[in-house]
Design a protein around this nucleic acid. Structure first.
Lengths: 103, 103, 103, 103
DNA sequence: ACCGTGGTTAGCTTTC
DNA sequence: GAAAGCTAACCACGGT
């Protein structure tokens, strides 16, 4: 699948910029670099999507195990906020320490 | 930092029990499973965040190399639409096949 | 229904003033303007709801006529994607033109 | 290669919308009806989109006039709930009336 | 440097 | 109960 996909991407990249292909590499080198960048981005976005699916799957398991999906989501959200709060608190603490020469 | 964080999270879990949580007992089986689920989710969300940062970074490189960030984003979006379109087209084709008994 | 409703709305507006509302005075100019804005919005939202119901109705007809609702939805979606794609492509083209000073 | 695919897709898409596309269905009539349905739907969706834009515009005006967009949205939401609540209350009242033979 | 804007993501609602 | 569409919150970016 991934090989096929890679090829797809290359083709699509050259297909996208303009109906006429000569716009693609006005600058040859630059075009290649652009393609490389785009491929890196798309690779990462695939990974991201995969992870999002994994997460969804876990919520599915959760649900199947009898847990309340919505509730667990709320917990996760709360915990994220909690972590944020602590991070901020630490930052403030650092500032204070710096201010009184304890850094 | 990460160890500290993990501990933080565990503490937070026990600190924020959902009302309808089936673990009346802190050491209960259900409670352990819930914690495990939550940890898996949070691990994945961390990964997701990391990937998002990577993507952002690449756009930064792009930009620094002289490419127009906005344009590249548009290209990536366009290519994503392409994939979407294919998906839709396939779905319709399947529906048609089913409709005429070719499924 | 509509007369009753209109009255309702006016009452509700005076009943639910936002804390930071600049009208300290119930009959204030700002208050009147706010009410006018809200009424315009609500009127449009009613229209929107009506249209959504119409669409739903058409799908009902479709279905009753023997068409596969799901398939038709997929077609409509695909066509929408088509439009989207064109929009994106145009945007990219514009960006390119700008980039090479053709804007 | 991908161009081939492109063409495939485009064909599939263009097979759907054109009113004068007689290849779509051997039965002709059904195809025409389908096209008609799709056009009605798309027309309504356009209207819906236009209305949504109008609403957005009003929020823009609001904002420009010094009102807090977010707050006004909250008000509108509240009022919608209010209306819903009343509707439900009326329904219940109707049920009661029916129950005691006052309908 | 801030505001406003657009785009992305997550949550909610409704449908199948 | 899963899936999709809609809506609302968030965030990052560009303009001023």
């Amino acid at each position: 699948m991934s090989n096929e996909k890679e090829n797809d991407m290359n083709n699509a990249v050259s297909a996208v910029p303009s109906p006429e292909d000569e716009t693609q590499d006005v600058g040859g080198i630059a075009g290649k670099r652009l393609v490389a960048f785009i491929q890196r981005i798309e690779r990462l976005e695939e990974e991201k999507t995969a992870i999002m699916e994994d997460i969804k799957e876990i919520y599915g398991e959760l649900s199947a195990t009898g847990f309340d999906k919505k509730a667990v989501k709320a917990i996760v959200r709360l915990r994220k906020i909690e972590v944020e709060k602590r991070r901020e608190a630490d930052e403030i603490l650092e500032l204070y320490k710096t201010a009184i020469g304890m850094s």
